[in-house]
């Protein structure tokens, strides 16, 4: 009998734990983001051909030139990427060096995208089969990484940028530059 009672109280405790877990998860906003596990680690080796004729391509060496940079992963076919154009422009105006990787894109589409939404990028590499995106641990477009002068990934922003993110990214850039 004692063991039955112990077992039952064990069940009650287990149930209480499950209940607490459910309640906790229910009370918090759902976090669906898949973050890169490479924060604090070097950018993987890659060399991408230019995505458009007007800009040079992008390689790991370009990210190790001593200057901290923003690395924007985008695509011309992605609506939120167009939506974050003003924030990227603001970042560029405030001195950020922004390089980009265009995912699964055609040169003419990228160039039309830049004409239409503005061009804050100094380099754009073409990642036609998402190879570099996978190597970076990026799970979608758009995403913005902060990479320091030694090519170490410092920060990752997932999804489109909002006005409040501009200051955060500038701050991250400043820290990466120190």
């Amino acid at each position: 009998m004692r063991s039955v009672r112990l077992f039952l109280w064990g069940l009650v405790i287990l149930f209480a734990a499950v209940f607490a877990l459910f309640a906790l998860q229910l009370s918090r906003p759902k976090d669906d983001l898949v973050r890169s596990a490479l924060i604090g680690k070097p950018v993987p080796e890659f060399a991408l051909k230019p995505a458009v004729g007007t800009h040079p391509g992008l390689s790991t060496a370009d990210l190790r030139d001593g200057q901290p940079k923003l690395l924007n992963v985008f695509a011309s076919w992605c609506v939120p990427c167009a939506a974050e154009a003003p924030q990227l422009a603001a970042l560029e105006q405030q001195g950020a060096d922004i390089v980009a990787i265009a995912i699964r894109d055609r040169p003419e589409d990228v160039s039309a995208f830049l004409d239409r939404y503005g061009d804050p990028f100094s380099r754009i590499g073409a990642d036609d089969v998402s190879k570099v995106q996978l190597a970076l641990g990026s799970s979608g477009v758009p995403e913005t990484f902060v990479v320091d002068g030694q090519g170490i990934i410092r920060y990752q922003h997932i999804g489109e940028l909002h006005d409040k993110d501009v200051a955060i990214l500038l701050e991250q850039l400043r820290e990466a530059g120190a």
Binding site: M1, V4, R5, L8, W9, L11, V12, F15, A16, F19, F22, A23, L26
Partner: peptide, 22 residues
């Protein structure tokens, strides 16, 4: 979740208290 807590928690606790009588 509230219903779950009332029904199951209640029934299990009731049983744990009553276990000796079964």
């Amino acid at each position: 979740l509230a219903l779950l807590a009332i029904y199951i928690g209640g029934a299990l606790a009731l049983f744990a208290v009553r276990a000796g009588t079964v």
